[in-house]
């Protein structure tokens, strides 16, 4: 009897372990499901047959210059959307990257402990701002401000969107950079100071170069966030699908196109497929960036970043 009881006992343990292992694969399973099902809805487009019937949309037409999804002769050139995304993302990173890295350098290497304890939580709070709040702020305050300052024709444009977006990207770049600087061995700072370097010399010439990999990863993660962000660009960029290089003109980004148009499309038609195809592009892009960033980041830092974001 005792033997059976014991066997039963082990069986429970065994089942518990298997059940836990099964549930733990959820993330992995859903990565595949996301890939499959977002891809699935864009298949008619990729294979091209849905297009030839109604719109004669070939691959060249897909990457053409006209995004006119709602009309009698709809055109689905996603080029303006790609340009829009690149433009807004570039502006946001040009602003966010230096500010975030310098601020991280300050708190990680130069600031007093007290100052650090104020700055860090505040930036964590900024990380917690819902993007729709930042979008609203951009729409109501930033747009008017920039229009007055630069004397602009369009209130909402790529520049306003980019600046607003930088508010969402700063916390990410800051957190990862800060982590990268903090994980550097203490002896590095001590050696540098012992050799007679000042604090700022240590910070700029020793610690900053040593953290390059982490900072590069921070850049990539910021880029991913910026490229995929939807609500801020939806509210602040004006949403006109123009492919110009002028940063003060309205743009429509890839993510904003999905966000704005998906609710109105007819299920299963060409427009629907194209929007899912844009989703596939966003997925592949973020997946690649993440994989590269992870390669450059130590696991520990990655964890902290995602827990804090």
């Amino acid at each position: 009897m005792k033997f059976f009881k014991k066997a039963n006992f082990r069986l429970n343990e065994f089942l518990a372990e298997k059940a836990i292992a099964a549930i733990a694969t959820t993330s992995l399973v859903f990565i595949f499901l996301i890939l499959i099902f977002v891809f699935r809805e864009s298949i008619p487009l990729v294979l091209g047959y849905a297009m030839e019937e109604d719109n004669k949309l070939s691959l060249t037409a897909l990457f053409s210059n006209n995004w006119i999804p709602v009309s009698n002769h709809p055109q689905f050139g996603i080029w303006p959307l790609i340009i829009g995304s690149i433009k807004v993302t570039a502006i946001s990173l040009i602003i966010a990257f230096p500010i975030a890295v310098l601020a991280a350098l300050y708190t990680a290497t130069l600031a007093s402990k007290r100052t650090k304890e104020i700055v860090k939580p505040v930036i964590e709070i900024l990380a917690g701002f819902p993007s729709v709040v930042i979008g609203f702020f951009a729409l109501m305050v930033l747009a008017t401000f920039f229009q007055n300052v630069f004397n602009l024709r369009f209130r909402l444009n790529a520049f306003t969107g980019g600046v607003a977006l930088s508010l969402a990207v700063i916390p990410i770049i800051y957190t990862v950079t800060e982590e990268a600087l903090n994980t550097l061995p203490k002896t590095m700072t001590e050696a540098s100071l012992a050799l007679g370097a000042t604090r700022w010399e240590t910070s700029l010439y020793v610690l900053l170069p040593a953290a390059t990999q982490g900072i590069f990863a921070a850049f990539l993660l910021g880029l991913g966030r910026s490229f995929g962000e939807t609500m801020i660009v939806l509210m602040a960029t004006g949403n006109a699908a123009l492919s110009s290089t002028n940063i003060f003109e309205s743009v429509r980004t890839m993510s904003a196109a999905i966000g704005a148009e998906m609710a109105e499309v007819v299920f299963g038609d060409a427009h629907y497929n194209v929007l899912f195809f844009i989703g596939v592009l966003l997925f592949i892009f973020s997946f690649t960036l993440n994989a590269i960033a992870e390669f450059f980041l130590k696991q520990r830092m990655m964890k902290k970043f995602q827990g804090g974001a």
Partner: peptide
């Protein structure tokens, strides 16, 4: 990877 996927793709 899941953490890095844009939220709009989750919507899709």
């Amino acid at each position: 990877t899941l953490a890095g996927i844009p939220s709009i793709v989750f919507g899709l």
